[in-house]
Amino acid sequence: MFLEVRELSFGYGNMLIPSLRGLSFGIEKGEIVGIVGPSGSGKSTLLRLIAGFERPLEGSIVLDGITVAAKDVYVPPESRNVGMVFQDYGLFPHMTVRKNIEFGLRRLKGEERAMRANEMLAMAQMENFPSRYPYELSGGQQQRVSLMRALAPRPRLLLLDEPFSNLDADLREIMCKDVKTILEKEKITCLFVSHDQRDVNAVCSRIITQTY
């Protein structure tokens, strides 16, 4: 298994009932897996645990053969090489589209970095807008830039947290197709969380249903 989640439990400090209890599943390399479930079932929490923003109460997370979270093990988010697309995109408002995409590429040299950024801009169909700021973009454009920014450093695993929830129905359908094409082209392992079964059906090859 490329990603193995074993007996994972987590609860926020002020909650009596844990948001996740004894969750286990695995993902093969290159798979695009969807997680669906109602609001409050712990889908986003699961992604935050895999990304490293939260530490599990019990259980472990193994990524590409390396334990990244367990009882006495914690690898910080910046060292996990996991990309994430947030529900609100999280584009840095003080940086242009190009600067946003280049943010995760600082280990590359100047020319190499520019080439990778250009590649991402082309894939996002944003070649003409590299100098725009996020607030100058439409919802769909912001979504694409956010996806390209996450993909640019070639993460081992990509996490998508309700990426289409802020888009209207027509744009949502187009974006689902675009995202699927991009993910397959990049051959990236992906975990996609949504409360909408249609989004997950359109993008993912396998679905896990999360309940309370």
Binding site: A51, E78, G90, F103
Partner: peptide, 25 residues
């Protein structure tokens, strides 16, 4: 927290995240 978290997933450590992303904001 969203900008800081986005920066951390892009490989920036806590200090780099603060100085490059959060402090300007």
């Amino acid at each position: 927290n969203i900008y800081g978290e986005a920066a951390r997933t892009l490989g920036a450590g806590p200090s780099e995240t603060f100085f490059r992303v959060e402090m300007p904001l």
